[in-house]
Design a protein around this nucleic acid. Structure first.
Lengths: 194, 194
DNA sequence: CTGTATTTTCAGGAATCATTGAAAATCATC
DNA sequence: GATGATTTTCAATGATTCCTGAAAATACAG
């Protein structure tokens, strides 16, 4: 049941936007991006319309250089796109408006930038200490091989974990379509099965 | 088909451990913990046996203070436990040996430390601009309310997303048992359904 | 309780990361 | 291609985080 309608003033809206921007910005560092970059993203998302560099600079009180770098990084992440306005030489930036596709983008990029390189290196490290342990344990294992086997077992377990995360992520990312796609569907499926 | 058995020397094993420690350590910063803390964890995991502070200090070439703080933080995360040895006054530290339970711990803690506070704040911000939009759009909406509604719609979408992530996470964490529990099962289920 | 071993704390220094601001580069228009 | 608008780059500075080392606190044995 809906509560009674309140009148929200313009400054209250701005206030709420500010608070959202700060909150989102704080998450940045724990997600591997800088606070400012997260703030710029938050702002473009919450205002919901394209802004140019000067507007970003002014609203967040940051330098031109910082604004330029942050915006470029967001574009590279695929979270923000450049748009042009007729009769205006300035570049405008617009955030992806669909929260779910945003999530997919973040997952996709983090897989690409962090998980895949990690997996590659883990494979290399794994190769330094011989082949995978066979299903049946090697009979008559000598002295050192015991330590090797344990080491390999731990590495294999971690590799399997990271592979699973990678596969899960790709599934989430893979299913296209508005309204959540794979991620939302996965949540629904899991809530019933697990 | 298995490749031929290779002989792995002791120093090769140490080499592989070192490389693993460095690799895991590099991930730290993008996961919101310090490089050293990740390295300490990696080392305890890969050597697979309890080590004391001095051994950690020496092997990673870090100070006593640093070792102490990193170990304490890992214990607080629940990734490492203190163990005591008979006839030895030193404290030893041992990493969780099960990679899957390790993953559950990390997810549980990140939900608690990051997602829940974020959700709380988002709810507060959401409350600043009135009730949820009803299923049927409000008829005859006045001037400012349009902007408010858009703002709220964007916030709501984000809240729904974060809630879903939270629920998913709790499901992964919730199912106990060795061998992966919810996380592994989820991966299996999804690979068939999505 | 005393002495010793061990752990914790934390101020200061070191290292890393983020930001500025202005110069250089790019771009669009005439 | 000259001009002015706009964007990008990057060396220098500032801010933040991390680490050290030694002093204080704690734990334990005799």
């Amino acid at each position: 049941m809906a509560r009674s309608q309140r009148t929200i003033t313009h400054s209250q809206l701005t206030e709420a936007q500010e608070r959202f921007i700060r909150t989102w910005g704080q998450m940045g560092p724990s997600w591997g991006i800088s606070r400012t970059m997260a703030e710029v993203h938050a702002m473009l998302y919450i205002v919901g319309q394209p802004l140019n560099t000067d507007e970003v600079m002014e609203r967040l009180s940051i330098s031109r250089g910082n604004a330029s770098m942050s915006l470029r990084a967001l574009v590279e992440w695929g979270l923000v796109t450049r748009v042009h306005k007729r009769g205006d030489r300035k570049e405008y930036f617009e955030a992806d408006r669909d929260a779910w596709s945003m999530a997919r983008t973040i997952i996709r990029e983090r897989l690409r930038r962090e998980i895949l390189p990690l997996l590659t290196t883990l494979y290399e490290i794994r190769d330094e200490t011989g082949e995978r342990v066979a299903e049946a344990p090697t009979s008559g294992a000598p002295a050192t091989p015991e330590a090797i086997a344990e080491h390999n077992r731990r590495l294999d377990a971690l590799v399997e974990l990271i592979q699973t995360i990678d596969k899960l992520g790709e599934r989430f990312v893979g299913t296209e379509g508005k309204g959540g796609g794979g991620l939302k569907l996965a949540a629904t499926v899991l809530s019933k099965v697990v």
